[in-house]
């Protein structure tokens, strides 16, 4: 039987943990709201870009832009891994890292050299532990202050690598924000570039009514040359914003569960405390009654 004091201390301890998890839940929900607002603000930009690019890509079928070329010989590939900076968000980071490591493994088996560019402390630490993997760049403690310049510099490095033939494929691995309950890890291929599905363009056209042919200034080819790299950056930024929202959603869920567990634990500990107290009172009573009996007898 544990002593009364031990149980009491344990209850206080769990109660304090509960306060922390509850506070973290609230902080995460506030941050999630911020992250969602940023996605909202970014959406018009990303959407417009997609529209412009789709309409342009259909015009310049078979163009010879370096970012559209598929390298015949696959020697090296880069993986941009976007994770969170902090833990305590359930299996969120582990799932993303797992996905990235599997991808890296399959590429290594295909005879390619894999390089990582990491945004977020968790992913960076995980990649550092991997044997024989080269780290191109890593950014830690930036998930709280994301901006387009960060996405731009990460993407630019991969783009220049692709253009001068050092990289043959570029992938982005991040935590997609589907809903509060779902943040699956997702892999998208950034390079060689594949035009976004044409149906999106058709939808857009249908909304706008009749359209006539566009004038392009300068030529379509040159325009594509400037739009393409930025589109890659847009996608990278999108991945970062999504990861940041997903991270906070995952943390909210994790902390909510933790708080609930604390409640259960406190309930069962309180029950144990009362039982122990009862038992000690009963044994004391038996002592007293026994003593009185002995005196009377």
């Amino acid at each position: 039987m544990p002593s009364l004091k031990d149980v009491k201390m344990k209850i206080t301890g769990v109660g304090k943990t509960k306060q922390i998890t509850k506070a973290m839940n609230m902080v995460a929900s506030a941050k999630l709201r911020g992250a969602q607002a940023r996605i909202e603000k970014f959406r018009p930009y990303a959407q417009k870009y997609r529209e412009v690019l789709t309409s342009l890509a259909s015009k310049v079928e078979g163009s010879s832009h370096p970012l559209l070329e598929v390298h015949p010989e696959k020697k090296a590939c880069a993986i941009i891994l976007v994770t969170s900076d902090r833990g305590l968000c359930g299996g969120f980071n582990a799932a993303i890292i797992d996905k990235a490591v599997k991808l890296a493994k399959s590429k290594t088996e295909a005879g390619m050299q894999v390089k990582f560019a990491c945004v977020g402390r968790k992913g960076r630490d995980a990649v550092r532990r991997l044997p024989s993997i080269e780290m191109m760049t890593s950014y830690a403690d930036r998930m709280g202050s994301l901006d387009f310049a960060l996405a731009s510099s990460v993407a630019q490095e991969c783009i220049s690598g692709y253009e001068n033939g050092e990289l043959d494929e570029v992938y982005l691995v991040y935590g997609e924000f589907v809903s509060m309950a779902q943040q699956p890890p997702r892999v998208i291929q950034l390079l060689p570039f594949e035009a976004p599905a044409a149906e999106a363009a058709e939808d857009a056209d249908a909304n706008k009514g009749p359209t006539c042919d566009y004038l392009y200034e300068p030529s379509e080819d040159k325009l594509l040359g400037t739009i393409l790299p930025t589109y890659i950056k847009v996608q990278a930024y999108r991945g970062m914003l999504d990861t940041s929202a997903s991270e906070n959603a995952a943390r909210m869920t994790a902390m909510d569960n933790a708080t609930r567990n604390c409640n259960d634990l406190i309930k069962s500990l309180t029950l144990l405390y009362n039982k122990t107290r009862q038992a000690s009172i009963t044994s004391e009573l038996i002592d007293i009654v026994g003593g009185a009996e002995a005196l009377n007898g």
């Binding site: 412009v52 309409s55 342009l56 359209t211 006539c212 042919d213 566009y214 004038l215 392009y216 200034e217 300068p218 040159k222 325009l223 400037t226 739009i227």
Partner: peptide, 9 residues
Amino acid sequence: KDHISLLSA
């Protein structure tokens, strides 16, 4: 107003 559709860098 009523400019022709144009895409320019």
